[in-house]
Nucleic acid binder design. Structure first.
Lengths: 340, 340
DNA sequence: ATGAAAGCGCTAACAG
DNA sequence: CTGTTAGCGCTTTCAT
């Protein structure tokens, strides 16, 4: 209980110098007598000495590893799972992951980023669709802190993990097409970012290739990127007369399904719904959600591995990009088109 | 791009001393000439100088505020929402919350706790049912870092936020009783902790008071505290012949409902299900989940406020405990007992 | 086998 | 108005 015990206290009590204590405690004390070593160890245990992290990192720079993880919202299943992937690698590699959940607020994101810079973080995983590379570099004060991007714009530079969103969109379209749907909707998001654009492009082009009309004026609706966002769009979706809808992500899909149910619209009998991501929840909602699977956990693992690589080989090849596969998971929220 | 710019660099370039720069940059530079001030500011912007956090906190001790938040699992909606509550206060108060998600692994919890100590964190919010006060004090090296407990054992010491779990159990029982149920089950957890014990006690005693038998041998089943845990218990629940089940929390309830559905058992017609917590998901599952509401977000807010209080008045009254109300939210997963 | 001294980047008396 | 000095807690040459 009480004030902090410093290395100096230990040294004084042991009747040796701080150097000795430091060396012994860091396992570099082979050259000291056994007696001294044991005395120091005992004192440490007795007073529960813990080295001060700040003092330490002030000197040792990069040798202590902390990585920052900036996500829009930890409480979304998608990012929660992603973070778990990060943690797994972090743990193996003895890295401490600092998690910051910025609630999709650009100002907060900025603040947190700056915080991390001040804390001389060793690397950064940024999952934010909002920030541009410029904003990031700005917040990073143009320091060369390695970072990797996730779930965001393609056209940006920087190492990153990617999944083939375009292909995901294709898969969704093919699935719906195979079920006989012709009136399809893409329930996108208001602040569209490249990943969603790609999903829609894949979806749209696949459909158009079948001589079925799909254009942004009639077949695109926009929701907030959340369960509630999807929920709010139930009525517009119904009014559109579509028999199938492909949503920006699973959260939106789940919200939409709730809205449809409350409006007396059956899924998939009246309207088929297909989501994106394959979050855990998908199997627990009713009907179980058909979706495009992304290996979320692995994305977290992959992102961390690439980051580590960048940290350890700062001068390595230009940009590293890892691609992860997506696939269709057909469940019960999609079915044959009943209409016509 | 590149190496770190220190206060010394700025001083040299401005042709002044480090003191001057430090003072000016910290807004304590009223006494310096406007010219000097502007020169320094300009240099700072130009070289994007950011003070080193470690060097800073080495000197300034407590005046920079960082709080640690240890939760079992950020990706569970419950803790996600809780953390959001913490963040809200943190932001107002200019605190940086460091979030650690320990995955319910005691060893990891321990590790993270130690990490926080090293980082001379100013305070701690611990949501872990597993750790005892002793373990915590141990990990904290008996330092007097203020911490507050959440979602855990009652009999422990320490400031904390509490909700009336016993009353929650009572409410659940009353609700089910009013619906005419007589064969009720409590779907508890394997590693039972005080909060769950209380919920069950309130439930059990309310039922027993009605001359209805409820005892641990026949009316208690144990699941893992997760969706999957509830899911796994569907068959045992069915085989028990109960017409209503009260689950340890909503995650378990949602898993159970999925399991029941897959077994062809209807909720609430065949079996009523009532959960605990009132997580966001409850309104999105089908049927919508009846539950005991806890003000999760407010719990996060409250926990942080108490912690802050403790940090700022270390010598204040012994222990501060804040109680938050619980209430029944009747939705569609519970209904009149059809059997009899 | 051990310690003195320097210094990481910064702030804060205390002198001018 | 500005600079000197000391020192936070620690690691690390380099002597002894």
């Amino acid at each position: 209980m009480g004030k902090k015990v410093t290395i100096r206290d230990i040294a004084r009590m042991a009747g040796v110098s701080v150097t000795t204590v430091s060396q012994v405690l860091n396992g570099k004390g082979k050259r000291f007598s056994k007696t001294t070593r044991e005395k120091i160890m005992k004192l440490r245990d007795q007073y529960q000495y813990v080295p001060d992290f700040h003092a330490r990192s002030l000197i040792m720079k990069g040798s202590i590893n902390t990585i920052g993880v900036l996500v829009p919202n930890v409480s979304e299943s998608f990012f929660g799972t992603f973070v778990e992937g990060v943690q797994q690698v972090a743990r193996q590699e003895k890295l401490i992951p600092l998690i910051f959940s910025a609630n999709r607020e650009p100002k907060l994101e900025q603040e947190y980023l700056e915080q991390m810079v001040e804390r001389s973080i060793d690397g950064l995983i940024i999952a934010s669709a909002r920030m541009t590379t410029e904003m990031i570099n700005q917040a990073l004060s143009n320091r060369d802190i390695p970072y990797i991007l996730f779930d965001r714009n393609y056209d940006q530079q920087g190492a990153r993990v990617l999944t083939d969103d375009y292909h995901g969109g294709q898969l969704a379209a093919q699935h719906l097409l195979a079920l006989g749907h012709t009136k399809m909707l893409f329930l996108g998001v208001k602040n569209i970012t490249e990943n969603f654009k790609q999903r829609m492009a894949g979806f749209q082009e696949t459909i158009n290739a079948q001589e079925i009309n799909f254009d942004e004026d009639h077949n695109l609706l926009k929701a907030d990127l959340s369960k509630d966002g999807g929920y709010q769009m139930a009525r517009p979706v119904i009014e559109s007369g579509a028999t199938a809808v492909f949503t920006a992500n699973d959260e939106v899909a789940i919200g939409l399904m709730r809205g449809l149910r409350e409006q007396g619209v059956r899924v998939p009998e009246d309207i088929s719904v297909i989501g994106y991501d394959d979050i855990i929840l998908d199997e627990y909602v009713y009907p179980q959600l058909t979706t495009i699977h992304q290996p979320i956990f692995k994305l977290g693992v992959g992102a961390t591995e690439i980051l580590l690589n960048k940290i350890n080989h700062p001068d390595a090849e230009p940009e590293q990009v890892e691609h992860f596969p997506v696939k269709l998971i057909a469940r019960q929220s999609t079915g044959k088109c009943q209409q016509n």
